[in-house]
Design a protein around this nucleic acid. Structure first.
Lengths: 212, 212
DNA sequence: GTCTATACATCGATAGAC
DNA sequence: GTCTATCGATGTATAGAC
């Protein structure tokens, strides 16, 4: 899970670098990011403290700030790393729109196995509504990207006559994203009574005629 | 909009109480609640400060605490007051389920005119996911109540054969609530491109055959 | 790379004067 | 009913020893 943030390929670097000081740093950074995700997920960015993150990873807050120079930088790093993992579910250049929808369902299943990540995004996306929030731009851009990708998928399905009557691509896009976000909130408040994956599939079944 | 929180009927008290000191208090409390709603909406409960609330209403933080003995009490008062306003849209004992759905649409339109309230609930419901949040119990109970009311409406419609094929009342309930919550987040991030009322109506049209 | 020590702001809340 | 003054806790961030 360690990342090669120091801009050297992990495999090659392990041999050539002196006494593995960079390797240690990378491991530490990764541990910090894990802890930070937990802390920001539990209380949001504003109420989560650097001290709490540092404590969980077993160092002082000053030590933590050696790796991430500010709290906002730390948040950005957490979001970046989760995006790498999450984006692999939705294909960037799908052969047909149905693949994207299947990717969303797979993403919902994956999310159900990582409550911390869901908590992070639900809390932050609400918190980051304020324009002065350090993650505001990130979330605005993220929604644009998601809307573009899902939108293209529904347009493709419409072209091929696979949307049910009276379903427009634009509405289907907004509604699908809203459904995923809304199900997450309910799931967080009562995990046992909400199956995000199943409900999303049922919902998409009502919009299209493709096999999911 | 003043509330009779001092446990005296407002009308009777106005005559008998000496020199209207209580009336002043009620006005002040109301002003505080307005400011608190704004502050909590912008940054959530944890990052919104009593000082900020006090500043907006033009007094010191100590002065504010004379009216609301703690920050949590203030939050509870804010939520109570908004509930009084919001709950009037969804009938408590509807003649038929369609009335409830029409109430939800009316509520969505009303919400679109009060961004602060939407921001408050979106931010808080995510923040209050944590069990130790002072509003956690409130939101758990609120979702139970909403689910019960909306659920009863869809059961009624099913009994009368007004649900579309393959739509179960339980799914329709979860999905409708998710749709409302999810649309709010998108609307907050980009108000001009989302019409909560229209999208909700379109969505409900896909679930039932009643005239909305 | 991590620590201690420290600076400095802001928070919720209390005590007591007016 | 509102104020000033103050407390103790907690927050981010910096400087410099090790």
């Amino acid at each position: 899970m360690a990342r090669a943030d120091e801009a050297q390929p992990a495999s090659a670097a392990l041999k050539s670098r002196p006494r593995g000081s960079y390797a240690k740093s990378a491991v530490t950074r990764s541990a910090i990011l894990d802890a930070a995700l937990e802390v920001f997920a539990e209380g949001g960015f504003r109420s989560g403290s650097l001290r709490e993150v540092a404590m969980r990873v077993g160092m002082s807050d000053a030590g933590l700030l050696h790796h991430f120079s500010s709290k906002s930088k730390l948040l950005a790093a957490v979001l970046d790393r989760r995006d790498e993992l999450g984006q692999q579910f939705v294909p960037l250049e799908p052969d047909d729109g149905a693949e994207v929808l299947r990717g969303l369902i797979a993403l919902a299943r994956f999310n159900a196995s990582e409550p911390g990540v869901v908590e992070l995004y639900s809390t932050l996306s609400a918190e980051a509504t304020s324009p002065d929030h350090p993650a505001h731009e990130y979330f605005v851009g993220r929604y644009q990207m998601v809307r573009a990708r899902v939108g293209a998928a529904f347009v493709d399905l419409e072209d091929r006559g696979l949307l049910r009557p009276h379903v427009s691509p634009a509405f289907a896009t907004r509604a699908t994203i809203a459904m995923m976000d809304g199900l997450q909130v309910q799931w967080l408040l009562d995990r046992s009574s909400v199956d995000m994956q199943a409900d999303l599939r049922t919902f998409l079944d009502g919009l299209t005629t493709v096999e999911l």
